[in-house]
């Protein structure tokens, strides 16, 4: 359903992405892994429209999305979260989801039952009327980040380190929540995570980035046995 081909991004001489290609199949969970600065978040930024690539193409269910604006991509069904949660300021949690429903869904309809259902599924229902920017704890902010993306009713959900920074118990709970959500709404997902255990647990397939390039693509267990991947993780510069 998502096809990324030969993507390159330059930031003033720095090559953030070089000739990157990968695909996501329907109902698949793809993990993006690799050291910091390897190009994972940059890929997300290109897909969601905050960064313009210097070359390459991205098609999503037949749409050439690089030509579309940020908000159009959302209505095509691509939702994302940010590593640092981005709540909509001055609005309550519920209002955050109302805006996401109203503008994220192609038909612009707001369904209160759906909003309640989403809030329930990420355990935020009791905080529905709280101020999104000021009255949430870290786990709740992460949950809202996911809920906001879900409220746009995506078919592809991109999660940028939603589990990072959580302590072990909440991490486990949250991971289970994500799995449930995926089943419930039959989503495809792209997940950025550092924690190998999480990746193994969640992903059907992984793509490994290093220095802006894809160095491996395949089944998680096999890929993590690949010596080049291991080297990139231990921080050695490839020859």
């Amino acid at each position: 359903m998502l096809k990324v081909e030969n993507l390159s991004v330059n930031f003033g001489g720095v090559r953030a992405l070089q000739d990157v290609s990968f695909e996501v199949q329907t109902h698949e969970v793809l993990g993006l892994v690799g050291p910091n600065g390897a190009g994972k978040t940059t890929s997300f930024n290109v897909l969601s429209g905050t960064v313009r690539p210097t070359a390459g193409s991205v098609t999503y269910e037949g749409h050439d999305i690089l030509k579309s604006s940020m908000h159009q991509r959302v209505t095509f069904g691509i939702g994302r979260t940010f590593q640092i949660p981005q709540p909509m300021h001055e609005l309550s949690v519920r209002e955050n989801l109302i805006v996401a429903q109203r503008f994220g869904r192609p038909d612009g309809k707001v369904k209160q039952e759906r909003i309640d259902e989403i809030l329930e599924s990420v355990n935020l229902l009791h905080k529905a009327e709280a101020d999104a920017a000021t009255e949430l704890a870290l786990t709740e902010r992460k949950a809202l980040e996911v809920a906001k993306a879900l409220a746009t009713e995506p078919t592809l959900l991109m999660l940028d380190e939603v589990l990072a920074g959580l302590e072990t118990t909440s991490k486990k709970l949250f991971m289970q929540t994500l799995k449930n959500i995926r089943e419930k709404y039959s989503l495809s997902m792209i997940v950025i995570e550092h924690d190998i255990e999480t990746i193994m647990n969640m992903c059907d397939r992984v793509v490994v980035f290093n220095f802006g390039k894809v160095i491996a693509d395949g089944d998680p267990e096999e890929t993590f046995r690949n010596p080049e991947v291991v080297r990139s993780y231990t921080g050695e510069v490839p020859a």
Partner: peptide, 13 residues
């Protein structure tokens, strides 16, 4: 919401 969090609003469409 756009006043202080334009990116957050744009990313939900």
């Amino acid at each position: 919401a756009m006043h202080d969090s334009e990116l957050a609003t744009r990313i939900v469409g």
